Computed example of a mutant assay.
Amino acid sequence: MPSLSDSFLQELQLKTDIVDLISSYVSLKKRGNTYVGLCPFHNEKTPSFTVYENTQSFYCFGCGAGGDGVSFMRKIENLDYIDAVKVLAQRAGMQMPDDGYDDSLSKKRRVILQINRETARFYHNYMMSEQGKVGLQYFLNRGLSQKTIRHFGLGYAPNNWDELFKHLKSKGYNVSDMLAAGVVRKGEKGYYDYFRNRVMTPIIDVRGNFIAFGGRVLDDSKPKYINTSDTLVYKKTNEVFGLNYAKDSGKDSLILCEGYMDVIAMHQAGFTNAVAGCGTALTNEQVRLLSRYAKEIILVYDNDEAGQKALNKAISLFDQVDVKISIPTLSG
């Protein structure tokens, strides 16, 4: 991979104040010539994360994470080197030299994101057509408005073997990239769509990228839900559904629900700070991500045994980060 010029990287470093950068993720307090806070990379109650303004670097005495602004951005946002530089360059109002500096991993990630976006568009358009009205009817029966359906980009995967595969092929995408995105699988008889005859919910990260999908059957057949497996752009233990919208709600609290449909219904009802963890169980990574965007987490879980078990686990996880927890009493 060709390297970025020293002059470009030096200018980027001059225009990136590491205290300002890290303050948008971590609550820092000045201590002498340094700044300290709770480490965003591991659970701790006593601050061991230190930012050095004079050297424009950071170091955590608890877990050993350290480096410069690029290192921080790579680790906090799960980016490769080039994508981390791009984010910082955009933040500093700088133009990247040219796309010739993309490495193969960065290019692969970008193509997967393009495939996911095209796939989401395909599912939504199909559902809004005559052939996909069964999917639209499902969402309408669940009380969702057309506006909400559009807002979340909801869709329907055709009850056909390879309709999405053929569509993506017609758009010029190659099979290896479709497989890497997780929207297509290979079987004994060739390639087939992973999601079929399911209502589809796209999962969008905080930067607005379409990173994965959740699919639900229209009846009670099993498995009820299937989700995108981990890919180059998606690791379910790191992601929170709805945070791309909730972070702009103007509130300093987040409502943590159990599932995607709960979040969507809450947003429709005006609670635009509602989110849900991706995957079946809340993780440390998701808790740390949520604590970066809110001072208070309101836990809204079902009253059944599974819901209460999940609630107790959530309480113990949030107990390890600097955030207030509220548990509302729900009637009915």
Rank of each mutant, 00 (worst) to 15 (best):
D248L: 13
L289W: 11
K222A: 15
S316I: 09
N244Y: 14
N227R: 00
L282N: 09
A281D: 05
Q286K: 08
C278E: 07
L289H: 13
K247I: 01
G270V: 00
P223G: 07
I315W: 08
L232V: 09
R288M: 08
Y225S: 06
A246V: 01
K251W: 00
G277M: 12
T231L: 15
N227Q: 06
A310N: 09
I315K: 07
T228I: 06
D252W: 13
T228W: 04
A281L: 10
N273R: 03
N284H: 06
I298R: 05
L282H: 03
T272H: 04
E296M: 08
S221C: 07
C257I: 04
Q308M: 11
E239R: 01
H267P: 04
D220W: 00
D248E: 15
G250T: 12
K295I: 00
D220Y: 02
A310F: 09
K236Y: 07
F271W: 02
I226W: 13
Y234F: 06
Y245M: 10
G270E: 11
Q286S: 06
C278I: 02
A314Q: 02
M266C: 14
Y234Q: 07
T280Y: 06
D262G: 05
L289I: 06
K235T: 09
I297P: 11
D230W: 00
K295T: 03
D304H: 10
L311I: 14
G270S: 01
Y234M: 12
E285H: 03
S221Y: 02
H267A: 00
V300G: 10
A281E: 11
G250N: 09
L232S: 14
A274E: 00
S229H: 09
G250P: 12
L254V: 02
K235E: 13
Y260A: 13
S253Q: 11
D262M: 12
N312F: 01
D219A: 09
I264T: 01
S249N: 15
F241P: 03
P223R: 07
C257L: 14
G279W: 05
E258I: 03
Q268V: 12
K235D: 12
S253F: 07
V217Y: 07
Q308N: 09
L256W: 04
D262Y: 01
Y245I: 07
G259T: 06
A306L: 13
T237C: 14
Y293E: 10
N303F: 14
D230V: 08
G242A: 12
M266G: 03
N244G: 04
A265V: 08
L243F: 05
G277Q: 01
A265D: 04
A306G: 07
G307C: 11
I298N: 08
D252K: 15
E305R: 02
V287C: 10
C257A: 13
D304E: 13
A265I: 11
A314T: 04
N238Q: 13
R292F: 01
S291Q: 10
L290M: 08
M266W: 05
L256C: 15
V240L: 03
R288A: 01
K251T: 00
G250Y: 12
A269Q: 09
V300A: 14
N244K: 14
